[in-house]
Design a protein around this nucleic acid. Sequence first.
DNA 1: GTTCCGCATGAATCGATAG
DNA 2: ACTATCGATTCATGCGGAA
Lengths: 298, 298
Amino acid sequence: MNQTYRIDTNTDIYLGDSKEILRLFPDNSVDLVFTSPPYADQRKNTYGGIHPDNYVAWFLPITEQLLRVLKPTGTFVLNIKEKAMAGERCTYVMELILEMRRQGWLWTEEFIWHKKNCYPGKWPNRFRDAWERLIQFNKTRKFNMYQEAVMVPMGSWAETRLRNLSDTDRIRDNSRVGSGFAKNVSNWLKREKAYPTNVLHLATECNNKNHSAAFPEELPEWFIKLFTQENDVALDPFMGSGTTLAVANRMGRKSIGIDIVPEYFDMVKCRLSPDGQLMLDMKRENEQTESERYLSVR
Amino acid sequence: MNQTYRIDTNTDIYLGDSKEILRLFPDNSVDLVFTSPPYADQRKNTYGGIHPDNYVAWFLPITEQLLRVLKPTGTFVLNIKEKAMAGERCTYVMELILEMRRQGWLWTEEFIWHKKNCYPGKWPNRFRDAWERLIQFNKTRKFNMYQEAVMVPMGSWAETRLRNLSDTDRIRDNSRVGSGFAKNVSNWLKREKAYPTNVLHLATECNNKNHSAAFPEELPEWFIKLFTQENDVALDPFMGSGTTLAVANRMGRKSIGIDIVPEYFDMVKCRLSPDGQLMLDMKRENEQTESERYLSVR
DNA sequence: GTTCCGCATGAATCGATAG
DNA sequence: ACTATCGATTCATGCGGAA
């Protein structure tokens, strides 16, 4: 059932259960783990949906292996958010952090991803959820962090970004609804470079592109810049559509991806192979009629 | 040692330990608790500095009383952030949430306060901390929430729509006095505001230069709007310089404040009394030279 | 070649209804 | 009583077609 595929000398992907596949890897061999595991009760059609009560027990064997394969100077960044259920937020994320510390992890920091376009909706007892956690774990206090790599040359960035915006987009971005974008731009224009904070402002990626992903490419890109150099190894044990790997490759890092869902394995194989994009496009056109199969991949 | 002071019929302040003072209040009598307790090891000069290891044990007797005095429809909003120590974030906030749920609290939601101008600084292993938690607890699932009170303008959505009305449309609509156009406008006005999310973008600076506070007035104001109506009762068991009380009073709510630090008790007494502002200003001018005393009040 | 408008669509959540 | 499914709610975003 398990499969391996070497896309090129820098990229390996694996089909199978992460907690088993990870045993294949040597100790202290990975510089960065960046992943967004299936959230509790989500993605039932692909991952089966892990019940909140079982979530910590389900995840801990995997983090145990991640702790082993990570280099002492490496970092594990976990993108996760607890769901609301019966009027309360679930507690499995907090419990996971406490248990991982017992495993030997250091809980170094918690970054906030502010999602400018969060899921809509209205409820009597809560507002829309516009943020997710990016929890940083380390093996030792002496981890590699390349802060200069994520300094923002915001003058030029803001100019190019604004130049490409239509008026309507500009109006949208200046909208005061929870964004604060306009304020930031004016700040950036003043200085050439500044260190960022632990709050990231990114929009979720829209689904109408070729690759649907749970997070925008900017998210793994930022952490890959911050915690790795060229030729370092990045690992995503729940690669999904392969966003983390695609970004790592583009940035000259080695990458390893694992997923238990065959459709994702095939999708990433196509996406990252030299001629894969063409294959994927052709495949997609065929699938336009096969709506059932299309849905199973989502 | 304990003292009480009735500033007016809407405002009582108490000098003393919250876990004792709170025993004086009847069950189910408070609509909103909003507070920012001293963070672990912070404000040593005033509160003595609670060690992170003892923080949960120190706080739980107080939350037990808060649970008793809160109305079943009331809400408890806790502004807190874990400090970093020995390269790690402390875990006392997570442990506190888990213990409070054992006390009977519901953990309804966690809002993020994004501090737009956060404290400056640079460290080799972390970026500036630009966010704090605002943790919402409730006694029951049926709590009061006045969402319309905090709706935010939807940017220029309405403007762009109006701009796109052709002249003929405008004339036509204007000719139907009171019917067509007015009705349309009123429809738009409904859509002119949007519900906010659970991420708040506020500066750290406080508006009132005379009073230093841990948070800007907008912070308690937002939650007082959201969770109380006029004449409801708001309580701050760590009132500090009295920002929560001042805002509550200005908004026509009753307020109760407690603090163990005599300097804060006196400061709030002056700040909220009819002639207190004048007294405070005079006092402050004297204190300009007494830098030591000034610091002790922060 | 731009800019603009219409439209579909999400890591969602609650309450009601159905088995 | 308890779980499973469904409809209603809502708004930032990118794409495609039109001006």
